[in-house]
Amino acid sequence: MAIDQKKTVLFLPAWYPNRTHLSVGSFVRSHAEAINTKLKVDVLLVFGDESLEKLFDFQQTNVNGIDTYIQYFKKPKSTGAIAQFVKASLYVIGQFYGYFLYRKQQPKPAFFHVHVLTRAAILPFVLNFFSKTTYYITEHWSRYLPADNSYQGWLRKLVTKQVVKKASGITAVSENLKLNMLRHGLAHPNFKVISNVTKPIFFNGYRYKESLPIQFVHVSNFATCKNVKGILEAVQLLNSRGCSFSLKMVGSGEEYEAAKIITEQLGLTNVTFTGFIYGTAVVEAMTNASAIILFSDYENQPVVITEALSLGVPVIATSVGGIPEMINQSNGILIAANDVEALAAAMLAVASGEIKFDSEVIKADALQKFHPSVVANQFLDFYRLGGAEI
């Protein structure tokens, strides 16, 4: 069946790049860009901004062909109970007000696609009581995993179950995430696993070369769960054993400054920090890697792994969450979480050439799993199973 390009899906993400956070929810934008090659994708984001002088500020932009509408609201600076209630109320009001302003410019979308539960689903869930409103859900959040365990509260769970029940389908980015959502009673007849997507720039014209100097690269948001301290301890361990290599730390976040301090304290002169970079700068940083390192305590499906594999670069990562679904003997090394000795041993095996990888095999496999066209077609099939006429 031919795709009707006039059909519009309105993304309702809880996380999406915006003027205050350039990288948050970038994986959602990648999904939007992939689907936008098949259907028209618009995005409506509601986001709190503490610096806002007025109560609401509606902005419209077009980024990479996606019409993006962002309803900023004045986020309270306090973290108290009353402030949290005000924040939640402003979010809900902002979502309906933002949709009203969106509809003044655009016709009603064919259906909605919520990314990250639960607040982003409030609009289509409520609209469904007044007129037939079709919406789908994609979940990315690790809060359902035992290691995270932040899916708490009877009201949150009650609302989330009702939101899922009314949806026309739900996807998770890994089998592990789906399993843990089912464990919490979030079941649906149309429940699929659809991967994160790799941006096309990671597939274009790169061939990993083993002749490059040994350099490991870590890319993350430097959250506590990424265990960057453990990576640095592994570097110190290898340095003490006379191994010659370098480590590049890419990104920024809550543990970034602490990681720089630890690096100085440990005397690690072979570690450098780039800060936050994006686009081709990230591609260039990763293409020079002998392997990408991810030493997380828990994960779902890290985009940095899909990106590395799409470049043909092997990955050393912890066997947590959805990572074992991505990494095997042909494309990387799995180790136990928080096992610094195991991480150091894996890095040494790569640095010494004891373990080698075929970058073309890695890249060809990634192309079949993470390319935008592959993921977009999976979403089209998912929409159709939920009853969408596209």
Rank of each mutant, 00 (worst) to 15 (best):
L294S: 10
K248F: 09
N204K: 06
L266W: 00
C243D: 09
D297F: 00
R207A: 11
S246K: 13
E264T: 13
V217S: 12
N204S: 15
E233Q: 10
F245Q: 03
L268E: 08
N196E: 09
R241E: 15
L294K: 01
K199Q: 09
N288P: 02
C243I: 14
I261H: 13
Y208E: 07
K229T: 10
G267S: 13
P213A: 11
S244I: 11
T224C: 11
G230K: 02
C225R: 04
G275V: 05
A291E: 13
G267K: 06
S244Y: 12
G205T: 14
I214M: 10
T272I: 15
T269V: 12
E255Q: 14
F295K: 02
E264C: 10
Q265E: 15
V228T: 08
I277T: 02
G205L: 13
V235T: 10
C225G: 07
S246H: 11
Y256T: 05
T274V: 14
N227L: 03
G275H: 08
G279C: 08
N270Q: 14
I261W: 13
N270L: 09
A234V: 06
K199V: 05
A285N: 13
S195T: 01
L238Y: 05
V250T: 05
R207C: 13
T272A: 15
R207V: 15
G275S: 07
F245E: 02
S195Q: 03
F276K: 06
L294N: 02
E264R: 14
Q236S: 14
